[in-house]
Amino acid sequence: FDSRAPVDIDAARMDLSDDDREVIFSGSVVIRQANLTLNADRVRVTYAKDASGNPQVQRLDALGNVRIAQDTMRASARTGYYDVNARLITLLGGVKMDRAGNQLSGERVVWNLNTRTSSFDARTAANPGGRVTGRFTVPDKKN
């Protein structure tokens, strides 16, 4: 997954503070990068500037009705956190993921954009015994 691909962001409002190297988007934010699409109510983008001054996006914090989609994977959660350099998206709070028919849910999911794998964890401070639930649809074998 090319984490240096251009990032296109659409929103109702944007507040940029170059000194803090931070841009806050609010109002049905849609972020697209390569084949990843992220929707949220509010997204905070933090970036750094490389030697020649090019902005390098470091991190996206998505808050409220977070939905991500990549190829056949759809997921939704309350908040999300995309570490661009590590190519990881962490979804937190009532995560539901649907991958080509397989539904999984949990409290915390780490989705790897490169390997397209996800690791689920349902334990939270409030519910240490939380269980991950999942339903897999197995295509019937033609024998």
Binding site: P6, V7, D10, R13, M14, L16, V45, G53, N54, P55
Partner: peptide
């Protein structure tokens, strides 16, 4: 410090420079 309001579109191009 910049604020933009009303169907904002921003394209962050990390390679070709700001």
């Amino acid at each position: 410090r910049i604020t933009m309001v009303g169907n904002v579109h921003l394209r962050i191009d990390q390679r070709r420079g700001r």
